[in-house]
Simulated scan of single mutants.
Amino acid sequence: MSLLEVKGLRRDYGALRAVDDVSFELEAGTILGFIGPNGAGKSTTMRILATLDAPTQGEVLLDGRSLVDAPDQARPLIGYMPDRYGTYDDVTVWEFLDFFARAYGLKGAVRRQRVASVMDFTGLHPLKDKLTSALSKGMKQRVALGRTLLHDPKLLILDEPADGLDPRARIELRELLRALADQGKAVLISSHILTELAEICDTCAIIEQGRLLATGNVAELLARSAGHGAELLVRLAVGAEGDAAYARAERLLLEQPGLDQVTHEAGGLRVRLTLEPGATPAQVDEVAARLLAVLVGAGVPVCAFSHRQLNLEDAFMTVTKGRVA
Rank of each mutant, 00 (worst) to 15 (best):
I193T: 02
R224Y: 04
P167R: 00
P257M: 00
A40P: 14
H192D: 06
R10E: 07
A50M: 07
M46R: 07
A247V: 12
L310P: 15
L197D: 05
D83Y: 02
E286R: 11
E160C: 12
R248Y: 00
V143H: 10
T51Q: 12
P153G: 06
L4N: 07
I206Y: 01
G210M: 04
T122N: 06
D166S: 10
V300H: 08
F316N: 09
S2W: 02
A245Y: 03
Y246S: 05
Y104R: 13
K185N: 08
T51F: 07
L180T: 02
M46N: 11
I206L: 10
P153D: 01
P281I: 00
Y85K: 08
V6G: 06
A50Y: 03
D129I: 02
F96Y: 14
E208L: 10
M119H: 09
E220A: 13
D285E: 13
G268M: 03
T148E: 06
R47W: 01
V110A: 12
G41I: 05
V68K: 06
L62S: 10
R235P: 12
Y13A: 09
R147W: 00
R111A: 11
L127Q: 13
R290M: 11
L259F: 01
G14S: 11
G105C: 10
V6P: 15
A162E: 13
M139T: 12
A237S: 11
F316K: 03
V68F: 05
L254T: 06
L212I: 02
E175Q: 10
D182F: 01
I207C: 08
I189E: 07
A325E: 09
A40M: 10
V91G: 06
A293W: 00
V60C: 13
A198T: 03
V60K: 04
L131H: 10
L222Q: 14
V91W: 04
E265W: 01
Y88G: 14
R170H: 03
D63G: 15
A214I: 01
G258R: 04
S306D: 12
L150H: 03
E265S: 07
L295A: 08
V302K: 04
K137M: 12
T45K: 06
L176V: 04
D260R: 15
R168A: 14
A226C: 05
L4R: 06
L275F: 00
L176W: 02
E220N: 07
L3F: 05
D53P: 13
E95H: 06
Q113K: 05
G36W: 03
I207Q: 08
P301A: 00
L9H: 08
V319I: 14
G86S: 14
T280G: 11
G268Q: 02
G242W: 02
D163H: 08
